[in-house]
Design a binder for these strands. Sequence first.
DNA 1: ACGTTATATGTAAAGGTTTACATAGCATGG
DNA 2: CCATGCTATGTAAACCTTTACATATAACGT
Lengths: 341, 341
Amino acid sequence: MSNSTPATIEDVARIANVSIATVSRAIHMPEKVANSTRLKVNQAIAVTGYTTNAMARSLRLGRSNMILVVAPDIGDPNFSNILIGLENEARSHGYGILIGHTQNDAQRGLEYLKFLNSNQAAGLILFTGILPFGHQTMTARLPPSVGVFEPVFNGGIPYVGVDDIAGARKAVDLLIAEGHRKIAFIGDSRTRLAYSRRRMGYEAGMDAADIGADLRIVFEGDGTIESGRLAVEQLFMRDTLPTAFMCVNDQTAIGVMIGLKARGYDIPGDFSVTGFDDVPQAVFMTPSLTTIRQPRTAIGKHAMALLLELLSDGQPTETEILLLPDLVVRNSVSAPSRIRR
Amino acid sequence: MSNSTPATIEDVARIANVSIATVSRAIHMPEKVANSTRLKVNQAIAVTGYTTNAMARSLRLGRSNMILVVAPDIGDPNFSNILIGLENEARSHGYGILIGHTQNDAQRGLEYLKFLNSNQAAGLILFTGILPFGHQTMTARLPPSVGVFEPVFNGGIPYVGVDDIAGARKAVDLLIAEGHRKIAFIGDSRTRLAYSRRRMGYEAGMDAADIGADLRIVFEGDGTIESGRLAVEQLFMRDTLPTAFMCVNDQTAIGVMIGLKARGYDIPGDFSVTGFDDVPQAVFMTPSLTTIRQPRTAIGKHAMALLLELLSDGQPTETEILLLPDLVVRNSVSAPSRIRR
DNA sequence: ACGTTATATGTAAAGGTTTACATAGCATGG
DNA sequence: CCATGCTATGTAAACCTTTACATATAACGT
């Protein structure tokens, strides 16, 4: 029966011939109410099509059932896949997820802060490393929060990400196993902590193989396609050429491939290339890119699970969850050609 | 001053030495309150850091400030870009956006329906053509809604999408202008209305050039990469080969390119290929794919604007907004080679 | 100077829940 | 058979707003 106005708890109570308190209990603490009455209530609920008014409930409870997810850029392909994990986990626990993006705009950050202050979200998921609320943060009351991908700089917030060191290690180990010795690292240790960890993985791998990083072929870019292309240009001007390019992320790897192809080289015939992240287009490159895959959906799931734990317990059981990323072998790596000087 | 508990309208009233009604008015109907008191109130708000409790407000108003966005798959790259448009427009009007995905699962659809019933969303944005609520829909009270991409089958809901006919026409016109006459259409008119419209655009273009569609080279797939590859296999078994493949979407085009390359053909030297959508990887294909670009952010913006209009006016001014997509010329199209039989 | 109207503010109810506290019934143990 | 405690239910307050209605004050016309 769909009347014009939604059924309230009072309608249910009247039909079931009990008080509204009993209805509420029958719904939220079923063990506290007698079998017979629980039955009556359930029937009344079915008849009326009652759904508890979330706003009234949230108001009374002083806490909403929404989780705010803030990312610098929701167009980022990384983002949407993590979203799936987040959403599934949240929904199955009765939470909805709200999304926002800051575009690195302070004004927007402020808006979200107001939003949080008005109690619209019970928890907060933050992407990529910064609280987008500027210096306001100090005075702000943030709800339970967890970071995704990277630790959050200006707040002691637990996070879930990927073990960048171990991931990078897998890439460098593969290259070494293929026989490479002169392995360039095209990196970006400035903008993101995750990236500097990848460099640590690279160095650890080189050390473990008793090669050691040759600083002449470690290049610092900014993680963009262009920076990868630029790295190739620069390295070709120096005397020491690598046989393989291990890149801090797929974007950089794509740039490197473009640069190499522009000079007429064959990949992996002349040079091997690896990336990190496994962005969607990695598989469509020619050759397809060997890279380290971010377990995106799993990250989302774990992040939300951690947040929900925070919401109920108050205390985080762990302050950092690092997932182990997989190596995905495609066609951009082979043994070094012998005709390299 | 950040106390443990957020300031309420009462705190503000006390400090400004007015009643709570006046505070409320000062915020929402400033012209109704004297300049001097408005000033006092604003100061008190600044002092307390007051933000109106959205849940209480929504409860009183009987309507939330959230828009629910439901998509079959939020991992879809189309989705995230539209999200940007949606979010910007919503946020700038004081609305937040909630996202959900159904994965074509009826159970999930039901959950969202309950969600809507509990008044958590003032409006609904639906992706791709179906109300995910099954037969429940008839009895359901849906909030104001708008569809994105395609009309919503089982409900008279306005939508904003792209002019698929005009878009397809641009692709076919380009091919014809390059000199192609035997243009295959690799389509999928079953799953989505948008796709069948693209075929209409194709046929209109062929007719306009007095060529007419040759049904022997019109192939019905299902819009996947695999279906594109399959189309190539099938066409090569027939007697009439096209010189160009116009594909219903980029996925299909990618499949066609894979199939063509597997047979050793050069694109666009031997065959030209066009897509539709301009998915992110289109630019990374070799050759990069000439296609029709969905104005994604604009679609999101228009959809949200239309919904907000519905929310205030009640009546939609238009039942269908069709945006004109652009042709983006890349490297998968050239004049037909003369050595084609 | 007085009645009328406009303007500014206050009072209190209502919106739908949850839950502390009160109450009633009933079983248990001595 | 009574005191005690437990179980099931009800009553009413509280959560924070918005707004219809009431009231007070000022302005105005005659």
